[in-house]
Simulated scan of single mutants.
Amino acid sequence: MSDKLKRSLHDSETASQAMARAALTPECLSAAVLVDSKMMGNTDVTEVVDELRRQTAAINSGDLTRVEGMLLAQAHTLDNLFAQLTGRALRSQQRDGLESYMRLALKAQNQARATLQTLAELKAPRQVAFVQQANIGNQVQVNNSTTKQTARPQKSQKAQNELLEVEHGERLDTRATGAAGGIDTEVATVEAEHRP
């Protein structure tokens, strides 16, 4: 077991557990892909992991210089890809070639736009507005004020959506008929003919 791995052991952790934990970090996984691609020559994987960890630490401390540079480089690469694919599409003698190259060119253009938009949002983040909403029935009330919240209505006051006919004798329609009483003579004559 290497000295580096021994130093990174957590409490009651075996060497194989420490190796599994270290191997599954984003830096190790990315380093494995980068070294396996052979684009970096014979660079040692641990050196790549260490560099990726330094870059991760820089981002965690708020330094986005590397991220901004990476996004700008990717936008340039995608823009170059767009230009090359558009040229191939225009030089194509067949309609299928024209369509497939143009489809790929427009995808590269859209990715370049999205990359630049991400870079712009990193440089100047959007302002987020928190909106309080109260949904009452099918109407929506939006309160955009950022001042202190208003006090709730007291028990003695009626809330806006409280039913009016809660208390005895209180009616919404003042023309409503009163309670039935005694025998209704007009209905009594119909009763004999149409049943009660």
Rank of each mutant, 00 (worst) to 15 (best):
Q109T: 08
M19Y: 07
V67L: 10
A58I: 06
G69I: 02
F130Y: 14
A18S: 11
S8R: 12
Q111Y: 08
M19H: 08
N161M: 06
A124I: 07
L9F: 04
A83F: 07
G62P: 02
I59F: 10
K38G: 04
D44Y: 00
H76T: 10
T150P: 06
L9P: 00
E47N: 03
V49N: 01
T115P: 01
Q109I: 04
Q84K: 07
C28P: 00
L90F: 15
E51A: 05
F82Y: 15
G69W: 03
A176T: 12
G97R: 05
V166G: 13
N80Q: 00
S61V: 06
L172I: 14
E162A: 06
T43N: 06
G87D: 13
Y101E: 12
Q139P: 00
Q154I: 08
A159R: 08
Y101Q: 11
H10S: 07
E191M: 15
P196V: 12
P153L: 13
Q84S: 04
S156D: 05
H10N: 10
T174N: 07
D3S: 13
E186H: 11
A32M: 06
E121G: 13
K107E: 09
A176D: 08
V142Y: 05
A180W: 08
A32F: 01
A151G: 10
V67W: 05
E51K: 04
V128K: 15
Q133E: 09
A180C: 07
L5S: 06
I183V: 11
V187R: 00
T147Q: 12
H76F: 07
K107P: 05
S8N: 03
N80A: 05
A114C: 05
V48T: 01
V45C: 05
M1S: 13
T14G: 13
T146S: 15
L172K: 10
Q132C: 09
R53A: 01
T177M: 04
G137P: 01
S145K: 14
H10K: 15
L9R: 11
E99C: 15
S12I: 06
L122I: 09
V131K: 14
N80T: 00
G87S: 14
Q74F: 04
A18R: 04
A31H: 00
S100Q: 15
L119S: 02
Q84L: 03
T150C: 12
K38L: 09
G178D: 08
H194L: 08
G69N: 03
D3N: 10
L81G: 03
Q111L: 13
D3G: 14
L85E: 01
E191R: 14
A180H: 05
D50N: 12
A129Y: 12
L90R: 11
A180I: 11
S37D: 09
V67M: 06
L34Q: 06
A22E: 13
S156K: 15
G137A: 13
V33K: 14
E27Y: 02
A134N: 15
E170S: 05
V33A: 10
R126M: 05
E191D: 12
R175A: 08
L104F: 06
